[in-house]
């Protein structure tokens, strides 16, 4: 029986889809059977970030409504055959998703895959609630920035009250993934430190993904960053995070991009 993981944040643009693709690919590289599901109905992007946008025929809503079989909607990754994508619908309304339909699809996917990773839409509305509903594990993606931390706090409250596990009185494993982190700026007290964010949100740390050009380069070409450049700083951080999700004890370090002597002397600045 597979584990259901939701990647959520409350705030938009913090890196949910990037992290879903990167973690999904990292877990699949490690030999696990992984499916990533896009819950952002009407604003799907996971297909684009994964480079599968031209292969979408059926989507989550077609499956939920019984218009297509699950096997018809799943898109197998061309680079790793243990990685699959279930895209969201781009044309349909969010209300087309029913609770029962989603529960049924997730139950079916749990039979087939080791990891069912749900990419949540931003916000705290229906779409976000449906994405987290069946989760056993949650990855809360947070930028070291006030509005993102506030929204993450709100989402953590919802994970503790609105998921099926919470309703059954069970615990849901919550992990913090700090993205777009700039260690230099944090050291200069221009950016919240990871310790600050951890103290405020008080959930265990899954990883620190450094701000990096590699993330945009990877999405430009439609490849999870962990596949596009596995040795880059963000990729190494995602691979470590994936190992921690599998229960391995890995020390949290902030991987650094290789910078020249001058760059190291003055600290890397991001405009």
């Amino acid at each position: 029986m597979g584990k259901v993981l939701v990647v959520t944040s409350g705030k938009g643009g913090v890196g949910k889809t990037t992290s879903t693709a990167a973690l999904g690919a990292a877990l699949a590289r490690g030999g696990e059977n992984v499916v990533v599901i896009d819950f952002d109905v009407g604003l799907r992007n996971l297909d684009l970030v994964m480079g599968a946008e031209r292969r979408v025929v059926f989507d989550l809503i077609n499956v939920v409504q019984g218009d297509a079989k699950l096997a018809q909607a799943l898109i197998r990754d061309k680079r790793i055959d243990t990685l699959s994508l279930l895209p969201a619908s781009q044309t349909r309304d969010k209300d087309a998703l029913t609770t029962e339909g989603v529960d049924k699809v997730i139950a079916e996917l749990k039979e087939k895959f080791d990891w069912v990773i749900c990419d949540s839409p931003a916000g705290i509305e229906r779409g976000a609630l449906l994405a987290m509903r069946n989760a056993d594990v949650a990855v809360v993606v947070t930028n070291p920035e006030v509005s993102s931390v506030r929204d993450s706090d709100r989402i953590i409250g919802m994970l503790d009250s609105k998921t099926l596990r919470a309703e059954r009185g069970e615990r849901i494993d919550k992990h913090l993934l700090v993205t777009r982190y700039d260690a230099g700026r944090a050291a200069r007290n221009e950016m919240l430190k990871v310790e600050d964010v951890l103290e405020i949100l008080s959930i265990p740390l899954l990883g620190i993904i450094p701000e990096s050009e590699e993330v945009l380069k990877a999405s430009n070409v439609g490849s999870p960053v962990t596949l596009n450049n596995p040795n880059s700083a963000p990729s190494r951080a995602y691979f470590d995070a994936a190992k921690r999700l599998r229960g391995e004890a890995v020390d949290v370090v902030i991987p650094l991009e290789r910078t020249g002597f001058i760059g190291r002397l003055f600290g890397r600045r991001v405009a």
Binding site: V146, R150, D153, G157, N189
Partner: peptide
């Protein structure tokens, strides 16, 4: 520096929001 200001503002705000949102239901 600005980061300590951000941390303090968040701590005050969230202490308030947690009490309000947590108990409303």
């Amino acid at each position: 520096t600005t980061a300590p200001v951000a941390r303090d503002r968040l701590q005050v705000l969230l202490a308030h929001e947690r009490s309000v949102i947590g108990k409303s239901d």
